[in-house]
Design a protein around this nucleic acid. Structure first.
Length: 885
RNA sequence: GCCGGAGUGGCGAAAUCGGUAUACGCACCAGACUCAAAAUCUGGCGAGAGCAAUCUCAUGUCGGUUCGAGUCCGACCUCCGGCACCA
């Protein structure tokens, strides 16, 4: 241990040692309890950003914590290395996507090693390598076999000028990213995976994981799946083409059917197609307008006004026999449900708005129970708003007077009997489209033969490898379609000339099962050996951004169930618990005059006397600058390069800071001054240990002697031991509940107490030195998850063992609850709920004792004098509240 | 627009079970050490009133439940995430 703390030196030393000793390599061992700590797979952009640092620091802290508890910890990493940026770089800069990706991975791997995250590098995987994507293809074929993969027509963003498919990002703002041409939607055949077959199971499985997953994530998934129980009802159409004699709607509220004032269909509904020639000019124009509007990429910001047009057709309400108009509305989507709805304005908000706008009749058929009588006598009541609750039916023939729930049941049965409808369950969830018209992804292993049709590539011919390169023009068909040697192939069935599928898979496919692959990363025959996965899986803690709450996490839950059904695993939920971390944000400065983001060093921040930011100006010309806190990015000049931070402050300080600064779930505002506090803390620990090193080495007192000294020990030592053991309890509790910021605060407090209570090492008695030794060792072991290099170095100095903390038997300290007990606690005394005084008592003091102590208190009598004590509430060990009148 | 969150000192935050609001850190102020500075150490630090003891107010806003609300309930405001081809 050097006289001064040199982070770089310590970190280099231990990173080398860890690699040599294989400290973080894990092997399945049925005799040991495993712990699977997983962080979300990064996209190899080339540079680590603070979000990564945060994600991996959290994971590594927990991995260390579990190792210190004797768990067999697996903590792997890999690369989500397929995807758009590599292909974008190929188009823009002419680089080879494979080389570009490999370079990025090398850079980021080096950065991760500098950070000292304890990964098992022998398990590293990368999605773009054939040995990995072979099994994307393998899974696809398995799903095809099971009927879980199928092809259908579906829309893509299309640039008519570049004649190419665009991602939503490339089509943002409704125009092509390269040429600015307005983007259209175009239909083409694409492959889908039947996630909807697992919709109910995805809902049911939530119960199993509800303890470990944030409720908000499960709620979001629940809403995304959007299960609704209801009924299909067919409405006969009068006066239209015989091609489409009726329209089917789905409703969850069949009980409101006597209030239907119209049928509203989507512009793309077959009824519209079938009758388009008989429609008036006005209707035809509206249809076209709505279709054009719906063909543009969705702009979520813009509020779409409800629009519609009466087709002139009529539908017959099968319950009442009433004739109602058929409308076309822009708020009805062909892709959702049946593409037609029954409009019940009195009981649905959207229908209400629509009816108000077009002056359609609004008839109330559900009433609040206490108003039923009025509704039976009056025809209708002018409604202010739609009444969407369930209630009692009115004006509904035989069903009048029935409660909604009963009516829904019997009306559905009636529709089934009369064969114009049936009960049904629908989902908002749609099947997962996995086709991408791109090069940089896993090829879909399908061959199209003019004679045999769609033929799967035989499983023993996998992988279908991507060619070395392709023409990357950004124009025309996917680059892969232009590589003849790839496209032209013999049909596996008839041997005739055939063509390969040139679409590749969505990169979400790669990330659905990567953490299963970590269990057995070099398997050539199977995605993983079931026995390996059986040991390591499921994941004990999965850590990643909240932005993945729905899609990735739903896909991967689905994939797990699919893998269970093909016999690879015997469970259906891949992760026991989930921690969603917040974003890392930084202050950004936008100059209105320059219309661009400017560098922080060019900005002068103005504050009021209290220190609040009131504004900012550009140093050069004193023009105003807008200050915001936004997600870090290069273009906003508010990013921080982790490498810079590490070289200035050291990896340990960076890690301590990101974990200390905010709870993992919160947004983290990057402030460089904060990290200096982290370094200062480490340096204080270093100096303290250095000062005491000699004294604690010569301290002969063992733990037993310490215990024997008991109450005979000097007060300072007793106080220090109490603080040490209280800290152990706190840190443990916090870790177990997923709090990573508060343990650091607790450790800082412990260090402060050590300073206050330790005294001078030269004058310390054996018992005192032993108490200090206990504090130091506990502190180091508890700090190791945050600052592993630092703690390894200090541990080596105090223990004399250079094999590393875990290998030399270092374990998380155990708390002695007796030692942690306070002699005396402060009890708050309130009068009528307001804090008036404090009394001191033993933590075990009985309620009656606390009550009399409180009532005897001078301050309390001041407030109770002349009044009657109505009630005294005592919370043991906390407070006494005297209620007077 | 739909779905899901979050708002506590100058700043990051703590209080996890309805029980002493502001632990810990940053910034700032004062002092010690120093020729000086840095580093380090000591002390102060929500707002207002008061010489002081102390009192009043304060957890986005408004209202409610309770002996007691940052915490529970209702309405609102602001900001953030997701919305199926960024990952």
């Amino acid at each position: 241990m050097d006289q001064k703390y040199f982070p770089k030196k310590v970190e280099t030393k231990w990173q080398k040692k860890w690699a040599e000793l294989g400290t973080f390599e894990a092997n399945a061992d049925p005799n040991r309890q495993k712990f699977y700590c997983l962080e979300m797979l990064p996209y190899p952009s080339g540079r680590l950003h603070m979000g990564h640092v945060r994600n991996y620091s959290i994971g590594d802290a927990l991995a260390w914590y579990k190792r210190l508890h004797g768990f067999n910890v697996i903590h792997p990493i890999g690369w989500d290395s397929f995807g758009q940026p590599a292909e974008q770089a190929a188009i823009k800069q002419g680089v080879n996507p494979r080389e570009w990706t490999e370079d990025n991975i090398s850079q980021m791997r080096a950065q991760l090693k500098t950070l000292g995250i304890g990964y098992d590098w022998s398990r590293e995987i990368a999605a773009h390598r054939p040995e990995y994507y072979k099994f994307d293809q393998w899974f696809f074929l398995k799903m095809l076999e099971k009927g879980l993969a199928y092809r259908k027509e579906s829309e893509v963003n299309w640039c008519p000028k570049c004649e190419t498919t665009l991602s939503n990002e490339q089509a943002s703002g409704g125009v092509c990213w390269r040429c600015g041409t307005p983007v259209e939607k175009r239909s083409r055949p694409q492959w889908f995976v039947k996630i909807t077959a697992y919709a109910d199971e995805l809902l049911e499985g939530m119960e199993e994981i509800s303890d470990g997953w944030p409720e908000k994530v499960l709620t979001m998934q629940k809403n995304w799946i959007g299960r609704s129980k209801g009924a299909f009802v067919n409405f006969r159409i009068e006066g239209g083409s015989s091609e489409v004699p009726s329209v089917r709607v789905f409703t969850t509220r069949i009980d409101t059917i006597y209030g239907v004032n119209a049928i509203v269909v989507a512009a793309g509904h077959p009824l519209v197609d079938a009758n388009i020639d008989s429609f008036s000019e006005e209707v035809r124009l509206s249809v076209e307008e709505i279709l054009t509007e719906q063909a543009a990429p969705t702009d979520y910001e813009a509020e779409t006004e409800k629009k519609g047009v009466d087709t002139g057709l009529e539908a017959i309400n099968p319950f009442s026999g009433e004739r109602i108009p058929v409308w076309i509305g822009n708020y009805v989507m062909m892709s959702y449900g049946t593409g037609a709805v029954m409009s019940v304005p009195a009981h649905d908000e959207r229908d209400f708005e629509f009816a108000k706008k077009y002056g359609l009749p609004i008839r109330q058929v559900i009433s609040e129970p206490h108003l039923v009588h009025e509704h039976n006598t009056m025809q209708a009541l002018a409604l202010e708003d739609a009444f969407t609750e369930k209630g009692i039916l009115v004006h509904s023939d035989d069903w009048t007077g029935k409660p909604s729930a009963d009516a829904i049941e019997s009306m559905t049965a009636f529709a089934e009997n009369k064969r114009f409808g049936e009960g049904a369950v629908t989902y908002r969830l749609r099947d997962w489209g996995i086709s991408r018209q791109r090069f940089w992804g896993s090829p879909i292993p399908i061959i199209y033969c003019p004679d045999c049709g769609t033929v799967p590539v035989p499983i023993d011919e996998l992988p279908v490898e991507l060619p070395e390169s392709a023409p990357f023009t950004g124009v025309g068909e996917s680059p892969l379609a232009k590589v003849e040697s790839f496209v032209n192939v013999e049909c596996p069935e008839c041997g005739g000339a055939a063509e390969r599928e040139t679409d590749t898979m969505d990169t979400f496919v790669d990330s659905t099962w990567y953490y299963f692959r970590y269990c057995d990363p070099h398997n050539e025959d199977l995605p993983f050996e079931p026995s390996e996965a059986a040991y390591w899986m499921p994941v004990d803690l999965y850590i990643g951004g909240i932005d993945h709450a729905v899609m990735h996490l739903l896909y991967t839950r689905f994939w797990t169930k699919m893998m269970r059904d093909i016999g690879l695993v015997d469970f259906g939920e891949p992760a026991k618990s989930l921690l969603t971390q917040g974003m890392v944000v930084g202050e950004s400065f936008y100059s209105k005059t320059k219309e661009s983001y400017v560098f922080p060093e060019d900005v002068e921040i103005q504050r009021d006397s209290a220190g609040r930011v009131t504004g900012a100006v550009l140093r050069s010309d004193v023009t105003p600058v807008r200050v915001a806190v936004e997600k870090m990015s290069k273009s906003k000049h508010n990013g921080v390069d982790p490498d810079d931070m590490i070289s200035i402050y050291g990896a340990d300080a960076v890690r301590v800071f990101v974990l200390f600064a905010a709870p993992a779930e919160n947004e983290l505002v990057w402030q460089e001054t904060g990290i200096e506090g982290a370094v200062r803390f480490l340096q204080r620990v270093w100096r303290f240990v250095l000062r005491w090193q000699e004294a604690i080495e010569s301290a002969s007192a063992s733990a037993d002697d310490l215990a024997a000294a008991g109450t005979e020990a000097p007060k300072n030592s007793q106080d220090l031991r109490r603080k040490t053991h209280q800290t152990i309890i706190r840190v443990r509790e916090n870790f177990e509940s997923g709090q990573f910021n508060t343990p650091v605060a607790a450790l800082m407090e412990l260090l402060n107490s050590m300073h206050d209570l330790a005294g001078e090492p030269e004058a310390a008695k054996a018992v005192e030195a032993a108490a200090v030794k206990e504090a130091i060792e506990s502190l180091i072991l508890m700090l190791a998850p945050y600052a592993p290099h630092f703690c390894e170095e200090v541990w080596e100095a105090v223990s004399g063992n250079g094999q590393g903390i875990v290998a030399s038997g270092g374990r998380f300290p155990e708390a002695d609850t007796d030692l942690a007990k306070d002699d005396e606690v402060e009890i708050a005394v309130q009068v009528n709920g307001k804090l008036r005084s404090r009394v001191y008592a033993s933590p075990e003091a009985a309620n009656a004792e606390l009550e009399s102590l409180a009532l005897a208190d001078e301050k309390v009598s001041e407030y109770t004098e002349g009044k009657t004590v109505v009630k005294v509430i005592v919370v043991p060990g906390r407070l006494v509240n005297v209620v007077v009148r």
